[in-house]
Design a protein around this nucleic acid. Structure first.
Lengths: 186, 186, 186, 186
DNA sequence: CATGAATGAGATTTCATTCAT
DNA sequence: AATGAATGAAATCTCATTCAT
């Protein structure tokens, strides 16, 4: 079967491959969940299995790369002086809506305590705490709610979104937030 | 080496085997998660693989049986005239705390729309609706909150509990409920 | 491609499968060396991969089974009152001649100190020691030569046979023994 | 991230690279055995994989280069008028003790009859034969022992050393030689 | 009806080798 | 000529499922 082999595009393809792998992983994790076979990721990226393992030695490394930019975006937003807690939560929700994988990764965090994942959690918790510290940036928050509480809330939102069809996630997230904001009791 | 094989205890063992499989599955799903090898379930039940498949043709059938009695207990509670929504939610929370498997099963529900799982959801939604219909049984509920909302809340609680160590689930569930009850905003 | 699947011959095939695996492993280890792919062993035995792993969870377990009977034969020979050290060494040499795998396994013994392999070595050393203890059974042995020395000698013979074509092993073993018996010095 | 790449030091680095590869291979073969991944050799040499393949198109070519100097040293020693067989055997033993890789390579020799390896064997056999031809250089040798016999003896020593921990090799070699010199029989 | 061995598809991972730069 | 990323063919091992007994 000559020609069926993918051409070796050489080292210059490295950056493109890496990006393709991250994009493919984002898609595959979102579609099939965080446990999806890594071989599907390689296939979806149009990249050999070996290349995947060269760039990302394990599943967590790949996931970290996928979510790294999400967290970076959160950090950038938090760093803007005018940004509010609501802005941050909205962005986090957007990310959750678009990627179940992040949800699963973060929610798995305490079960398989991989240092890298814990570090990811730390970063998010930290930036939430930073915003919470300034009352003007979180004017409507009920006093006493902590950054850890918000992480829990995020886990709850995420849990509500996990495994439901992509089409319904946006609406479900809205509904979950409306319940969470006001509470279910009078 | 004949005799090393577990004796065939005959048809009369069927019921006992079924019960043992359900008990083992509850335990294994709770310990190793919903994706645990079915062979572990059979082994834990002290039953052959074939028997497992005879009783439960697939993973969902087994899971259904496991949670059937949980739902039955909810129904029984709902049927008691004096029971309140709070009682029901407390029982559901207990079940979630004690079994990650249920959480995973229910949260997977809409993704792999297995009719049997959907039926399970229906039953729970139905009994919640029944209780909600009587304001005296749900005195503190904010007006406008529906049974579907409560299912979503349950999914959120479940998501918050998924994948965290068993030892922390009770406390996490309490914290999640306290946030959910009053809301995170002033 | 229907029909290409090997039929499930049922549990009654277990013993035959196990024997076939041992025979295949003996052959494959002899032909391709101890590091040969286990999948070739399964293929050569006409057995599924899973069956191989069921019977022998790892390479060492398979090797142990292969050589178990060799060691048993040695023990039986040593247990015969009339047997001499020369008889034993002749049998060991025969075994080495017919199976390079044993050689490699035993020579690897101290590098990957698997308890099972060490146990195998112990058994052989022990039976040699038993025979050595009775001067009538080892009349020609130079005084001071221990069972450990003989194990070393065996390792040397084995090393000399390793990796040489089967056809030359018998003659090579003879030559090695003749050098070892009399020594290379005057 | 340009610059993270090792600089291309140009053609002048060729000789240095070659030497580094040989040194690294000697070390790696000794440590991890002859089957060690060639990528480890390249890494240990601080050289790209491609350079390794440019210098040494296959594993044997690399091994040949590694042992070439060992054989050269033997030839140099044999060429010294005053050197004895004992001197030669001592040097060969030293080499075996310090490098399992040589052992494995030479013991594989007849199995994968690579011409280059056979040539290496020829050279060693030849120089032994040269020394044997002069009785004054091998005064203690039992008459009738040939150069081929000594190669076999070397294979036996090597076999005895293969796969045992480096720390024990010296003592094991001594013991093997003492048995071989005087023989195990009275 | 129970048993548990048999089966093979598939997931992960490693490495020899090629090749664009 | 050097570099190291790309490639995919194995090899290992796991498990859902089937089926002879």
């Amino acid at each position: 079967m000559p020609g069926s082999r993918r051409p070796n595009r050489g080292p210059s393809a490295a950056a493109a491959n890496r990006a393709a792998l991250i994009a493919a992983a984002r898609e595959v994790f979102a579609t099939e969940g965080y446990g999806a076979p890594l071989s599907s990721v390689a296939r979806a990226a149009g990249v050999g299995q070996g290349s995947l393992y060269r760039h990302f030695p394990d599943r967590v490394a790949l996931a970290m790369a996928v979510f790294e930019e999400g967290v970076t975006a959160l950090e950038a937003l938090a760093a803007e002086p005018g940004s509010t807690l609501d802005d941050l939560l909205a962005l986090m929700t957007d990310q959750a809506v678009s990627s179940t994988g992040l949800i699963e990764l973060v929610s798995r965090a305490t079960r398989e305590p991989d240092q890298r994942v814990l570090g990811l959690r730390e970063r998010v918790t930290g930036l939430l705490a930073g915003v919470l510290a300034d009352p003007r940036r979180a004017p409507r928050l009920r006093p006493g709610v902590t950054a850890d509480d918000l992480m829990l809330v995020f886990g709850m939102i995420a849990g509500a979104l996990a495994h439901i069809p992509a089409a319904e996630r946006r609406a479900t997230a809205e509904r979950a937030w409306s319940l969470l904001r006001r509470g279910v009791e009078k």
